[in-house]
Simulated scan of single mutants.
Amino acid sequence: MRRILKALPSLLSLAVIGLFLTACSPEVGSEDWCADMKEKPKGDWSANEAADFAKHCVL
């Protein structure tokens, strides 16, 4: 039980850092997102990303 309580602050810190990092991504369909996708290699795009790119950035 003590090991868990000792590790708890570290785990919470990692969770908070993870939330901050994911909150920095631009919203899908925004100009920033379209620019990021244009720079990303096409082979790394998921099917959803390709569909969103076509929907928001091309059409």
Rank of each mutant, 00 (worst) to 15 (best):
M1C: 12
M1Q: 11
R3H: 07
I4E: 13
K6G: 08
A7I: 03
A7N: 05
A7C: 06
L11W: 01
L11D: 03
L11N: 02
L12M: 05
L14N: 01
L14T: 02
L14Y: 03
L14V: 00
A15P: 00
A15H: 00
V16S: 00
V16K: 05
G18S: 01
G18N: 05
L19Y: 06
A23P: 03
A23T: 07
C24K: 12
C24W: 03
C24I: 06
P26G: 03
P26S: 00
E27D: 13
S30K: 03
S30W: 03
S30M: 04
E31R: 13
D32C: 08
D32T: 09
D36L: 13
M37V: 15
M37F: 11
K38Q: 12
K38G: 10
K38R: 14
K40Q: 11
K40S: 10
P41A: 04
K42A: 15
G43R: 13
W45Y: 04
S46G: 06
S46R: 03
A47V: 15
A47W: 08
N48A: 14
N48R: 14
E49G: 00
E49L: 05
E49F: 00
A50I: 14
A51C: 12
D52S: 06
F53W: 03
F53M: 05
A54C: 07
K55E: 13
K55F: 12
H56E: 14
C57L: 06
V58E: 11
V58L: 14
V58K: 09
L59W: 09
